[in-house]
Design a protein around this nucleic acid. Structure first.
Length: 347
DNA sequence: TACCCGTGGCA
DNA sequence: TTGCCAAGGGT
């Protein structure tokens, strides 16, 4: 650590940490400022859940996971189907597949890695989570850069290079202000600042502890940083899903399948469908003894889907699957798209 | 690098 | 209603 870096970090990080000591958000996966950190399992679990996901959406999932699987060993011993079902509705299901694989790797080696390189070797752990776990759980210096830090740093230094090319400059700026001590508090303070003060639109500069340091504010239009490339238009796809019912001695049940592979909704329970995820348009409305229950609209990251829902009490399912009791459909762990379709089928 | 991968809240 | 975007990672 150079003396010049120490000096440049000093003012900004000190003002930020003083603000954090007063203003830290209280979150289920967090220790208060200055307190011993949560164990690595909790930090890692929360960081995986928080990827591209709001704290409000994560909170109930985090509580349920921690109650059901209190340790990484417990999670490692879980059934795949139980973990996937517990993740249902949170999105980005590769996170759940990787979470379980990583838990099993940690359990096999006996403890969590405590270095960025060691952590990055775990599935689903990239540069951000590795740095966040090192800083927050192990309280060692690491340069933690998420979308909040990107925004704060791009504004502090008025970095006009558009994303993603700006990432190199942003990382250098984050490195320059990251202190040697209280690395975890500093990282979380940056995120709190980004979430509550240095917001994407209409930043509240009058409340900002770093206003005096901020070049973007001095230039008069902080909200223009970071500069983002134009978004591409989202296409709309059409597809069909099938609600196949039967009634027998065990009661009323519906045929569910498990989606294959690592593609969209991969590994999740689902209604059988016409293959909309693998082609631009599905095959559409089937002929025969089907009732069209309606159409569900659902937005994915890079396309919107119009899914027509078709119901039959006579069709014979083919391939692998399971008859699931209709009265317990909410326990099946259907991702939101198919939960919507089920609700439509049930009218 | 560019694209794939969910969902929900909010203006 | 539509678009934006949130504690990113994998390929």
């Amino acid at each position: 650590m150079s003396a010049s870096k120490d000096r440049s970090a000093n003012g900004v990080s000190q003002r930020l940490l003083e603000w954090y000591d007063r203003s830290a958000r209280t979150l289920p996966w967090r220790s208060p400022p200055g307190k011993p950190p949560p164990p690595p399992y909790r930090v890692w679990l929360s960081e995986v859940m928080l990827q591209q996901t709001t704290t409000a959406a994560v909170a109930p999932y985090y509580a349920r996971f921690l109650e059901r699987w209190p340790t990484v060993e417990a999670l490692a011993a879980a059934e795949d189907a139980d973990v996937m079902a517990a993740w249902a509705g949170l999105g980005y299901y590769s996170r759940a597949r990787n979470l379980l694989a990583a838990a099993r790797a940690v359990a096999a080696r006996g403890s969590f890695p405590d270095t960025e390189d060691g952590l990055r070797a775990l599935p689903g752990v990239g540069a951000y989570i590795a740095a966040a776990v090192v800083a927050i759980a192990f309280d060692r210096r690491a340069v933690v850069v998420d979308a909040n830090v990107e925004r704060v740093v791009a504004r502090l230094f008025a970095i006009g290079t558009p994303l993603p090319a700006a990432r190199k400059e942003i990382r250098a700026g984050a490195d320059a202000i990251t202190p040697d001590e209280r690395a975890g508090d500093f990282a979380q303070a940056m995120m709190d600042l980004g979430a509550t003060i240095c917001t994407p639109r209409d930043p509240r500069c009058l409340l900002c502890p770093l206003a005096q340091d901020c070049r973007a504010r001095a230039e008069g239009d902080p909200a223009r940083f970071p500069v983002r490339p134009a978004k591409k238009a989202k296409p709309t796809r059409k597809g069909a899903a099938f609600w196949i019912e039967r009634v027998d001695a065990t009661g009323r049940s519906v045929w569910l399948v498990r989606r294959e592979g690592k593609g969209i909704l991969g590994g999740m329970r689902a209604l059988p469908d016409d293959g909309w995820s693998a082609r631009a348009d599905g095959f559409g409305v089937p002929s025969g003894d089907w009732h069209h229950a309606g159409t569900v609209r659902h937005g994915f990251t890079h396309f919107d889907l119009e899914l027509s829902v078709h119901v039959s009490r006579a069709a014979q399912p083919d391939g692998e699957g399971e008859w699931w009791p209709v009265e317990r459909i909410e326990e099946a762990g259907l991702p939101t798209l198919f939960a919507k379709a089920a609700a439509r089928a049930l009218g």
